[in-house]
Write a protein that binds this DNA or RNA. Structure first.
Lengths: 239, 239
DNA sequence: CGTCCTATTGATGCCACTCAAAAACCGTGG
DNA sequence: CCACGGTTTTTGAGTGGCATCAATAGGACG
């Protein structure tokens, strides 16, 4: 059920059988979530967090003028709103981009883990600091990269993150996002995303059609993106 | 020495005398840092983290073309690179914007805290998730706010964060940043920052001269910024 | 098989960037 | 105390990347 999450943690450090059992038993239930349903709302007191089992969800903020900024896209295995455990409420909302399922973990169970499982606690803490690293990379994108480079970077990042949990097929992966969603991730307009994707098609670097990304030339795409996976902390070491 | 840091934590939850003592004894030494000195480098294995005692530091990433993106500005009391405890290295570098002092906390001491002080551990974890919340707000700024709104937002944020540790004088505070620094925070050019600041002067909202921000009309400035302090988690509650 | 959402393309406009240059500021040393 | 060089601030003129407006085509679904 949370095998992807364990894959993700085990890519960074050992997880003992005991810790795996503790984490599994921390789950109270599984919740299915419909497409476009916001299942966590900003500024509401929260008592549980959610591990994404399958599907695709995003964190976002709505602006006064109706625009939206997505602040992170979550792939299966991500502990989507673990931040709400220390914070107790969130500054943003979370919605499912496609029909998804999450494993619900009550904060009480997380608190118990911090009381008795220091190493597992550090792993969960690690997960939230990796989110922060992804946030920083997105800031770099939005602050300093061109539209072309930004799109390339996001496609490279998702390729790497899907690969960690085994959801890629070589240089191709399913990405059920609309161009509107991409625009809301990258601080651009959907129209400009469309022109940018056309440019990538012409350059034979990558195609994004019928909800699938096919990377034709990964090194060249990474080059356009100035992509370096160091911010994803893919190396395994004791924490 | 780390009084500002304790102020910051105590604005969010109780910190017992024992926890205060544990945190104080976790400090190995104090390190002075010269202006413009990068004291933590990206991608280098780290064995300690730093609490900012006084001064001003920022985290940043250098781009291939020589541009720079600042990803966070830290005020006294911030646990600047606590993220490196779970991560063990950082994806970005950290430099002092003015002569500063930091309290060095070895990761061994932090590990000991996670083994014996679950509540204090949660407070430290909280500090890193508050950084992530600030990251998200900056993403919203760079993705969806105009230059005018972005500058206003940063000035409001710093006002609020300096206020938490008692470093404001009403609606005014010392901010020893150059317009170049502001540009690197906001994903703009220094020239445009200059024109934006002139606009604020003309509108009589805020002035930024001789390293000091004087907010003439805070509500109006917050309005331009669409500033809401909920992402700073200023409410005190048990964690 | 009509309706709604998404993708695509063209025309036009504007916000912020680039290039250029002068003025103000600041620390340093004579 | 002032001369000096480097950095920062300020302003002008021109450009360009991405947004906006408008409209059609394509696809998914009931």
């Amino acid at each position: 059920m949370i095998d992807y999450a364990l894959n993700k943690l085990r890519a960074r450090d050992e997880v003992s059988d005991t810790e795996e059992a503790v984490l599994r038993s921390a789950i109270s239930h599984v919740m299915p979530i419909g497409k476009d349903v916001t299942f966590v709302r900003a500024d509401v007191a929260l008592t549980s967090s959610n591990i994404l089992i399958d599907g695709l969800v995003c964190r976002y903020r709505d602006m006064a003028n109706g625009e939206r900024q997505v602040t992170e896209v979550h792939v299966p295995g991500d502990f989507v709103d673990l931040h709400s455990f220390p914070l107790q409420r969130l500054d943003h909302s979370i919605m499912a981009l496609v029909p998804s399922r999450v494993a619900v973990v009550p904060h009480d169970a997380l608190r118990a883990i911090t009381e008795t499982q220091p190493h597992l606690t550090r792993l969960l803490w690690l997960a939230t600091t990796m989110d922060a690293a992804i946030h920083r990379e997105w800031m770099v994108s939005m602050g300093r990269r061109s539209a072309l480079s930004r799109v390339a970077h996001l496609l490279c990042e998702l390729h790497a993150r899907f690969a960690v949990v085994g959801l890629t097929d070589g240089n191709s992966y399913a990405l059920p996002l609309t161009q509107i969603d991409l625009a809301e991730c990258l601080g651009l307009t959907a129209i400009h995303i469309n022109r940018t994707l056309r440019e990538f098609r012409l350059r034979k670097l990558v195609t994004f059609r019928s909800r699938r990304v096919v990377i034709a030339d990964l090194p060249a795409l990474q080059d356009v993106a100035e992509f370096d996976d160091n911010y994803l902390f893919l190396d395994k070491r004791p924490r």
